[in-house]
Amino acid sequence: MLALPALLLGLAAAAGTPEEDYIAARDAAIARIKKIEEKKPDADVSKIDRKALADLEKRLQAMIGDLSVKPYPAKGKIGFESLSDDEVGSGGLDGLRFAKGDDGPQVYVTTDGLAVKWIARPEEWWTKKSKTPPGLDEALANDEFYTFAVGEDAALSRTADLPISKPEGATFAHALLGGWAQDIGPNPEQEIIVAVRKDGKIYIAEEKAKNYKLIPACEAMWKESEKKTEALFKKYQASGAKDEKIFNFYTAEQEKGDRDYRNCYSERAPKEAFFPALVKEAQEIADRFGAK
C-alpha cells in the first residue's frame, strides 16, 4: 500500500465529521457576528448573517437530506432565522424545517448527534433543575425544550399529554397538546406536538389540533383566578403603582391560576369524550414517520 503524502495525512486528521464541521462553522459565524456587534452595536450584519445561514443550510441538507413524507415539502430550510444573539429567532435547534407556510403542518428534522450537542448548551429549561443536561428522550418529553428548540418568539405551554404508540421502526415517540403564547392563561390556539426518533434522526412535528375542546370546569377555575388578579391589580393601581408587595401577589396569583388551569385540563381531558379523537390525531402524525 502506498503511503499518503504528509500534507494529505494532515488534512485527513484535521477533517471532522459533517456534524463537527457544521458546528465549527456555526460557532465561527456566531463569534464573527458577535465581535462586530460588540465593536459597533448599530452595525448592519444582515449580509454576513444571510451568507452564513445559507452555508449552514447546505450543510444541514447534506446531512439530513430530503423528506418523502406527506403533507410536508421535500426540501427543508434551516430552522432558525439568525446567528445574532440580538435578533429574535436565533439560537434554535440545529435542523431543517419542512413547511409549506407559516400556519400549516410543519416538521423540524435534526440528527441525534446535533440534538445532543444542542441540548448540552446550558439553558434555563434544564439548568434550573439539574447540573447535567438531560438525555434525548428526557428532553423530548419536556415541554420547555420546545420553547427553546423550535419556538420563535413565544413559549409553549403544555395542556395535556397525548398517549401514543411508537410508529414502526422508531425508538421513541411522545405527543402533547399545547399552545404557543407570549402570556399566560387559557390559549384557544392549541396544537399537537409530536416527537419521533428513528434511524438516528429526530422529527418534531406540529399542527393545529382539530378536535380540541374547552373543559367548562377548568374554564370556571380560570375565571375565578381572573377575579382575584383583577382585584389585586386594582389595589396596585390605587397605590400609585408603588406597592411592590401587592404587585408580587398579583403576579404569583396569575401564575398559580395558569398552572391550576393547565393541571385541571391535563387531569380531566383523558375522561372527556373528545380525547380519543385528539390521541388519534397525534398517532396519525407520528405514524407518518414509521418504516416504509
Rank of each mutant, 00 (worst) to 15 (best):
A3M: 01
P5V: 02
L9D: 02
L11K: 11
A14H: 11
G16M: 10
T17Y: 05
T17P: 08
P18S: 03
R26S: 08
R26T: 04
D27H: 07
D27L: 06
A29F: 00
A29I: 03
R32V: 00
K35M: 02
I36T: 05
E37F: 07
E38V: 00
A43S: 13
D44I: 10
D44N: 15
L56D: 01
L56C: 07
M63R: 03
G65P: 04
L67F: 04
A74T: 11
K75L: 09
K75V: 12
I78L: 13
I78F: 12
G79K: 03
G92T: 07
F98L: 06
A99V: 02
K100M: 04
D102N: 13
D103N: 06
Y108T: 08
V109Q: 05
T111G: 12
L114C: 05
V116R: 15
K117F: 03
I119T: 05
E123W: 00
W125G: 00
W125P: 00
W126D: 07
T127V: 12
S130Y: 10
T132W: 00
G135C: 11
E138P: 00
E138A: 14
E138I: 01
A154H: 08
A155Y: 01
D161H: 08
L162S: 04
P163H: 12
P163L: 10
P163T: 07
I164D: 08
I164Y: 05
S165T: 14
S165D: 14
S165F: 06
P167I: 02
F172M: 06
A173F: 03
L176K: 05
A181V: 02
D183H: 13
D183W: 15
I184V: 12
P186D: 14
N187G: 08
E189S: 06
I193G: 01
A195D: 02
R197H: 03
G200T: 06
I202K: 08
I202L: 15
Y203H: 15
K208Q: 12
K213E: 04
L214F: 13
I215P: 08
P216C: 10
P216N: 07
C218Y: 10
A220I: 13
M221L: 15
E226Q: 15
E230H: 09
K234H: 09
Q237I: 06
A238S: 12
A238M: 06
A241L: 13
F247K: 15
A252R: 14
E253R: 03
K256C: 01
G257M: 11
N263V: 01
Y265G: 04
V279E: 01
E281K: 01
A282T: 02
Q283F: 04
Q283E: 07
E284T: 07
E284K: 05
R288I: 01
